[in-house]
Amino acid sequence: MSEVVFYEYWRSSAAYRVRIALNLKGVTYRSVQLDLVEGEQRNPDFLARNPQGLVPALEIDGLFLTQSLAIIDYLDARHKAPPMVPADPAARSAVLARALVIAADIHPINNLRVLNYLRSALGQDDAAVADWYRHWIHEGFAALETGAPDRGLFGGDLPDLADVCLVPQMANARRFDTPLAAFPRLVRIDAELTALPAFAAAAPDAVKP
């Protein structure tokens, strides 16, 4: 079997999601860190393979995969346990909807290139950028909290795709001093998840160069 190579940045929440999935699936990989702050994701060699110039990307099975949820979907198809989404169509749709609250609604408007644009092109100071960040986290978390279980994980006894997306976003929320008192279910789920070895080993502080 050829080597699995993961192109990432240690602080990227999208890369964090994929690290969790790789660990849950038991896939061994070599990490290649691309420093987003220094713009290393824009180097010509990487752009030739990934024209978006974004991380994460995964080299596996002779393929070069991009976009975190697409990578996780591939891993889920190749490595069945534990499943990231259920087989039942209605249950699958519900899991995807929860995951996409984070991956499609919160994260894209709060990632580094958006924050940099707010500062550089729109002239916003750090306080305004932080307010922007916390606002969109609060919007998404309020919706997730409403449907979160009273006990167990989003996936029940085993983590699912919503759980995999939640933990990196909770880490980001704390980085930006987002008040979390309104989200006790999410805080509880996050605490249970981060105690699991696959999640702990994927944490930014655990992989920071």
Rank of each mutant, 00 (worst) to 15 (best):
P56N: 08
P56Q: 05
P56K: 10
A57L: 01
A57N: 03
D61W: 09
D61M: 07
L63W: 03
S68I: 04
A70L: 08
A70Q: 05
I71M: 09
I71W: 04
Y74C: 05
D76F: 08
D76P: 08
R78S: 13
R78G: 10
K80H: 15
P82Q: 06
P83V: 02
P83D: 04
V85G: 09
P86Y: 00
D88I: 06
D88L: 08
A90M: 15
A91P: 05
R92P: 06
S93W: 02
S93M: 15
A94C: 07
R98T: 00
V101N: 07
I102N: 02
A103S: 15
A104G: 15
D105K: 04
I106A: 02
P108D: 01
I109Q: 14
L112W: 11
V114I: 15
V114Y: 07
L115T: 09
N116Q: 15
S120K: 14
S120N: 13
L122S: 00
L122A: 03
D125A: 11
A127V: 15
V129K: 11
A130P: 05
D131K: 14
W132D: 02
R134L: 02
W136R: 08
F141P: 03
F141K: 06
A143H: 15
E145G: 03
E145Y: 11
G147E: 14
A148H: 12
A148L: 10
P149T: 01
P149R: 07
G152L: 00
L153I: 01
G155D: 02
D157G: 04
D157Y: 01
L158S: 11
D160K: 00
L161D: 02
V164K: 01
C165M: 11
Q169R: 05
Q169K: 04
Q169F: 11
M170Y: 13
A171V: 08
A171I: 07
A173F: 11
R174S: 10
R174Q: 14
F176P: 06
D177C: 13
D177L: 13
T178E: 07
A181S: 15
A181H: 14
A181Y: 02
A181L: 11
R185W: 13
L186E: 04
L186A: 05
V187L: 06
R188I: 07
A191P: 03
A191H: 12
A191W: 03
E192S: 14
E192G: 06
E192F: 01
T194C: 12
A195E: 12
